[in-house]
Design a protein around this nucleic acid. Structure first.
Length: 456
DNA sequence: TTTTGAGTTGTTCGA
DNA sequence: GTCGAACAACTCAAA
């Protein structure tokens, strides 16, 4: 029996894992995880990632080899140690992922070791869905249609595997406590998915927008780390649709909505695949002449949840505390940075990516670009979120705001969204608004008008 | 090639 | 308080 290496990256699961199927075909498998960006272990990786790697180690009966350092070198040494000539991976579509793969592939090949790519983090690999002309889509809705018609495989069976044991692993310092909100590992992800299907999927199409209700699937982190694959989710959703939404008690629109959310993830991965520069630069070149402010104090106030706008601050504090933020609040917080503080979106995108456990480069950057109006959506320029109105609309009782901003807990109901209107509103140390939204909205429109002139 | 219809998520103002 | 209109122009996709 030969031996192969399975190099896990953002695919920390054993089920529905085609790369592992390929690795285990007629072979014993040495599972490996490398912390490449944390070579010395000095700057520590995110707790959530570490917890997920620890869960995978448990699933592999302790045989997962964890190392800190340069992947090519480590994989090379390990392959030689166990006599393997194949390293199996699922491909990573991001610019950095692709670069890393090319580098590792090159270095391994000089030692006669092959890097074998099977599958990706997506139901449809980025670059596969195109218009009939072969050009990539730039608008979501037609992409969604084509993507659904393109179709995807059924989930892959989990192979029976003989793990290679006894290879030295670096010590993995596990976080002290597991966060309740985002338990790590494949088993937890599957449980969460089933809970969601039996519960909050019904009504998802509307309740997903309410941060106070907290009725999203909360699977973004699991998807980002590959603890669960979108193919698995799509398969289950198709079954729901087939047995009839009535039998399952789930409306067709709820199922379609969830599918569409998964498709957004795939769409943005596709956009990044075709435009690697769009990770940190405006996708639409005509937006590059936009006038921005560099205001370190304002940026800091935004980061720390001290803008004086309750809905924005609540979101930023949730991000800090949980490594996650509700999508509706992400949009409003992002809009505030871009349209009210006039700061260029990459500053915000970078901070989100740093803090979010689900921080996915493609989704993060392009969602920011959508808000900023620099990306794949010819959004009307006048669509500027009002942070107060958004709060009242999507957190009508103020529950979400009070959960994250203790200084506002004395204010009942929607009053928590406008503390300045109430006599005792700012008594408990909540900050005055750092800007006037009405004025900054006009300023943003003015800058867009300038841009229009400049592009004439 | 030209034409046509449409584009995730909104806000404000005035009747 | 509610409701409809106005807010630009452009790019994209498909016929």
């Amino acid at each position: 029996m030969k031996t192969t290496l399975m190099w896990f990256r953002r695919d920390l699961r054993l089920r529905d894992q085609p790369a592992l199927v390929a690795a285990a075909k007629g072979a014993n498998v040495l599972p490996v995880f490398v912390f490449a960006e944390h070579k010395s272990g000095l700057d520590s990786p995110k707790d959530r990632l570490v917890a997920s790697v620890a869960a995978l180690r448990e699933q592999t009966e302790g045989s997962l080899v964890v190392r800190f350092g340069d992947p090519a070198q480590i994989l090379n040494e390990l392959a030689i140690e166990v006599g393997a000539v194949e390293v199996h991976i699922s491909s990573d579509a991001t610019p950095n992922g692709r670069a890393e793969e090319r580098l590792v592939e090159e270095q391994l090949s000089t030692a006669g070791i092959a890097l074998v790519r099977t599958g990706s983090s997506y139901a449809v690999q980025p670059g596969r869905v195109t218009k009939s002309s072969g050009e990539p889509y730039r608008v979501f809705t037609p992409f969604l249609k084509a993507w659904r018609e393109f179709g995807w495989n059924a989930p892959f069976e989990q192979p029976s595997i003989t793990w290679v044991r006894g290879v030295h692993s670096d010590r993995l310092t596990e976080p002290d406590e597991q966060p309740d909100e985002q338990p790590a590992g494949e088993e937890a992800a599957i449980m969460r998915w089933h809970d969601f299907c039996n519960g909050d999927l019904a009504g998802y199409s509307t309740s997903r927008d309410r941060p106070d209700l907290n009725r999203t699937s909360r699977l973004s982190t699991a998807l980002n780390l590959g603890e669960i694959h979108p193919r698995t989710l799509l398969h289950d959703l198709a079954e729901f649709a087939e047995i009839g939404s009535e039998a399952a008690g789930i409306a067709r629109e709820d199922i379609d909505r969830y599918i569409a959310e998964l498709a957004w993830r795939e769409f943005y991965a596709d956009v990044l695949w075709h435009n690697p520069d769009s990770a940190w630069n405006d996708l639409r070149p005509q937006m590059r002449a936009m006038r921005h402010d560099e205001d370190a104090d304002a940026l800091e106030a935004w980061k720390s949840g001290a803008t004086g706008f309750p809905f924005v601050d609540a979101g930023m504090r949730q991000l800090q505390a949980e490594g996650w933020m509700h999508n509706r609040v992400r949009m409003v917080a992002a809009s505030f940075l871009v349209k009210d503080l006039h700061i260029w979106w990459p500053a915000g995108a970078k901070y989100f990516l740093e803090k979010l456990d689900d921080g996915d480069l493609a989704s993060n950057s392009h969602s920011w670009q959508w808000v900023a109006g620099t990306g794949t959506d010819a959004a009307p320029y006048f669509r500027i979120f009002n942070p107060v109105a958004q709060g009242i609309k999507f957190d009508p009782q103020g529950d979400y705001v009070r959960r994250w901003v203790p200084e506002l807990r004395h204010l009942p109901g929607a009053a928590a969204h406008e503390p300045w209107k109430h006599l005792a509103g700012l008594e408990h140390g909540y900050r005055q608004r750092i800007v006037d939204h009405g004025e900054e909205r006009l300023e943003a429109l003015e800058r867009l008008a300038e841009l229009k002139e400049a592009n004439l």
